[in-house]
Each structure stands twice: as C-alpha cells, then as structure tokens.
Design a binder for these strands. Sequence first.
DNA 1: TGAAGCATGTAATTTGTTACATGATTGG
DNA 2: CCAATCATGTAACAAATTACATGCTTCA
Lengths: 170, 170
Amino acid sequence: MAPAPLNPTSFVVLGLIDALGEATPYELKGAASVRLGDFWSLAHSQLYAETDRLVGGGHLEVRREQSGRRRKHYRLTNRGKDAYVRWLADSDTDAYELRDPGLLKLALGAQPANLARAQLAVHEQKLAAYEAAAEAIDLPPTDGRVLALQAGIGHEREYVRFWSSLATQG
Amino acid sequence: MAPAPLNPTSFVVLGLIDALGEATPYELKGAASVRLGDFWSLAHSQLYAETDRLVGGGHLEVRREQSGRRRKHYRLTNRGKDAYVRWLADSDTDAYELRDPGLLKLALGAQPANLARAQLAVHEQKLAAYEAAAEAIDLPPTDGRVLALQAGIGHEREYVRFWSSLATQG
DNA sequence: TGAAGCATGTAATTTGTTACATGATTGG
DNA sequence: CCAATCATGTAACAAATTACATGCTTCA
C-alpha cells in the first residue's frame, strides 16, 4: 500500500518545520498562527496527528527528549525537504472554493438586509485586524506573508463593499 | 445520545429540498450546482449520507418507489422546515476562513511571480464564467442567487487585481 | 447489440473536530 | 502554595473524499 499522499495540511507542517529547523507540535501551533494568521487555521490535535503521519511517510524524523517532558522534536528528512520544495515551486495549485457560510445563506434565500448588517460587522472587524497586523509587521514588502496579508485585506475590503451595499435597504 | 447537530451541509440539503418540494439525492446534486454554482460544492455521496442522517434526526421523510429503481424521494418534515427557517433567519452565521491554497503557498514562501501567473489564469477564467452566468441568469436582481453571484464576481475581480500586481515582476 | 454515459447507491479510507486528561510553570 | 494557564498528548466521533459497483437508457 502506497503511503498516503500529502495534502495541504502536510505542507503547512513541512513548511513551518522548514522555516523553524526543528519544532515540537506545540511550537508549530504558535508558528502557524503567526505565519498564516487566521486565513488557514489548524486544530492542535491535527498537528500531532500530521507530524506522526509524516514520520510514517519518511518526511520527518523525530528526536524525543530522554527525560522531563519527553517532548517530540521534528525535523525534515531529505525526502521531506524535497517534497516541500517541489510543492512550493509547483505553480499548479489545488482549486479554491469560496465556501462562505454568509453567502450560502444569501444564496438560499435569507433576507439580505439583516444578514448584511451582521456580516458587515464581522468583516469590518476582520479588516481592521488585518490592517493592524500589516501595520505591525516588520518584514520587507515582498515577503510572502506580507503579500498574503495584502490579499486578505483586499478580500475583506471587497466584503465590506459588498455587504454595505446590501445593508442599507430593508 | 443527542442527535448530531445540523451543519452547513445539512442546511444546504434542507434548503434545496425546501425549494424543490421533494427530491432524490440525484436531483439535489443538480440543484446544488445550479443554485450554489461552484462556490459550495458537495460530492454526490455526501448527499446520500446527509439525507439519511436528516431522516434519522426527523428533519426529512422518505418515500421510496415501490418498483423499478426504487428511488428515495425526500421531503421536509415540520421539524425540518422549522430548523431551516430558523437557520435562514438567524443572521449569526458561522465564521469564514479564506483557506486559499494559492495564498498558502505564497505565505509559505513560493516565488510570487510564477505562482501569480498561474493563479491569474485560474481566476480570470473563473471571473469570465461568473460573468457569463450573471449574463444568462433570469431572475430579479434582488434574488439571493444573483446577489451571491455578484459577490463571487467581486471576489474574482479582487483576485485578478491582486495576482496581476504580482505577475508582472520576475 | 453493445458502448457510452446517466443515475443510484454503498463501502473504505482519510481527515478534521471535539472532548478528555494530565503534567509543568508561573505569578499573586 | 495554589490557581491559572501553558504545554502536551490521546481518544472518540463526525464528516468528507475516493473508490467501487451496478442497473438503466439511448443511440449509433
């Protein structure tokens, strides 16, 4: 039986470990929220599961502390590094779907005005948070994290524009 | 043990059946792609599983053909209708996460220019498809489906703008 | 009449979420 | 020193994806 193929979660883990050199699942949790913000969240239990799987596939290796907490520290193997680098360089990415619960309600017939007011509040808040993060970040403007944040800001602006246009009626 | 709570998939099914009056899973498949376009897709096996679950929770009732294909036709029960109407009227929707694989690669350090060219092509195509759909649709401009489509168009425009700005370099 | 593809489902596998448990550290 | 909370994991459950199976229509 072939080992399970790598999925986006796998690459998040590989990418974070690549950046950190070595990490425990707990450290990955922190790194994920820093590097990916809230546009791609993972439950901490997923990180424990995914690191295990990646060890099984030969993409990571573990070093376990011999005393105290006996934490597991993970590093990339050559195989893991290769797989990650190839994924990163491959511009043919998975398809993306909007899958926004707010738009789902709208499409299924919710009253636009009420929904819009609630959604507007949500997206205004998220926009403010992203803008604050962009303000605070200390990285060259060509860094991928900055660019991704700019993309997030663009989307939230678009959401605010969209729901604003519906919020006024009703 | 309490019956499993309803999730977005459940409400998609309830909503489609509400609109259709009665439907087989196969008909739901068609209805979903018409009403939700490609912003919220479901595998056909999900529809069989979800209709079953909803029967178990008392939200749907089945009528099975007595001969031939013995298809199952589902209708809302009062309980199902109620749950659906309440969900639709509740403006407090689930949170939304962007979760775009393209942005994930960008944030993890992919070369912006190559990625951008590929993503640009994808989103230009999607934008064109949405615009064609908006052109073809024959519904009042206040219909939720039309509005959701407008939202999709706005997002795709934003994507095109964003990736365009990165595609020129490199 | 047989191939293509539409229609209808089930089963196996993989993923993701939620809940539970408990040890270590630290600030009050 | 004790309450919070940080850190570390496992287990149970729910959901989604993929693969498998197979009957019905249609039309060449």
